[in-house]
Amino acid sequence: MTASAFPDESTTLMLPGPAGALEVAVDLPEPGDARPLVAVVCHPLPTEGGTMHNKVVTMVARALRELGATTVRFNFRGTGASEGEFDRGVGEREDLRAVVDWVRAARPGQALWLAGFSFGSYVSLSSAAELAPDALISIAPPVAGRGWDFSGIQIPEVPWLVVQGDQDEIVDPQAVYDWIDSLPRKPQLVRMPETSHFFHRKLIDLRGAIQHEVKGWLSQA
């Protein structure tokens, strides 16, 4: 499969990946709002129903698109129309690398932000040192009790936002706060009260929190 050209309108396409074709959704901002910025957003755990159509993932993408970013969501291997099988975060990092390589080849010179929700935040953060994004957004990173090792993750010195619900029933909020406290360089942290893992009835608040926190980064994009 030959890599598709980067589209000039919002669409879904298939992209060559390391384990077969990857299903990719590209969404463009309003023409008058567009900035030289592409944000790649990673979805939650596929084995628990996570896809690029997850409501948190689509809201993160919407929040960034309203600020002028082109957004790229994709299904990890074995999810949706993407080929291959779930690989516990190892192959998924390769999937992300393939998408990022495609974006950078198609949009040279533009800023690249990486965002992820839950498992997607693990994949994006554990890939960050290699991929060297211009900014990071992590929603409910599963730092404890989910089988994902955050201990060796190296975070580049770029703007970084973490959003965590205080009533998350899947990711222990205190574990997230303790992990952040242990880091030599801490992210911008937004703690959202009365908020569950999937941000039920809080998606608009999530959108506002992201936009408020990252607006100051746009001068660098």
Rank of each mutant, 00 (worst) to 15 (best):
3 A>V: 04
4 S>R: 14
7 P>M: 01
12 T>E: 13
13 L>S: 04
13 L>E: 02
15 L>Q: 10
23 E>T: 02
25 A>W: 08
27 D>W: 04
29 P>Y: 01
34 A>S: 15
36 P>Q: 01
36 P>K: 10
43 H>E: 01
50 G>F: 10
52 M>Y: 02
53 H>K: 14
57 V>S: 08
59 M>C: 14
60 V>Y: 08
61 A>L: 07
62 R>N: 10
67 L>E: 08
68 G>I: 15
71 T>H: 09
76 F>S: 06
77 R>W: 14
83 E>D: 07
86 F>N: 05
87 D>K: 07
88 R>Q: 11
91 G>S: 05
95 D>K: 11
96 L>N: 01
96 L>Q: 07
99 V>P: 08
101 D>G: 14
102 W>Y: 12
109 G>T: 09
109 G>Y: 14
112 L>I: 12
114 L>M: 08
114 L>Q: 11
115 A>M: 07
116 G>E: 05
116 G>K: 15
117 F>I: 11
117 F>T: 00
123 V>Q: 02
126 S>I: 08
126 S>P: 13
134 D>Y: 05
135 A>P: 07
136 L>S: 00
136 L>H: 05
140 A>G: 12
140 A>E: 12
141 P>I: 11
145 G>T: 10
148 W>T: 11
150 F>C: 06
152 G>C: 03
152 G>V: 04
157 E>N: 14
157 E>R: 13
161 L>N: 00
162 V>F: 00
163 V>M: 00
164 Q>F: 05
165 G>A: 10
166 D>I: 14
166 D>C: 15
175 A>Y: 11
178 D>V: 08
178 D>E: 13
184 P>C: 02
190 V>G: 04
197 H>D: 02
197 H>N: 12
198 F>R: 13
199 F>N: 01
200 H>C: 02
202 K>N: 15
203 L>T: 02
203 L>I: 08
215 K>Y: 00
218 L>H: 01
218 L>I: 00
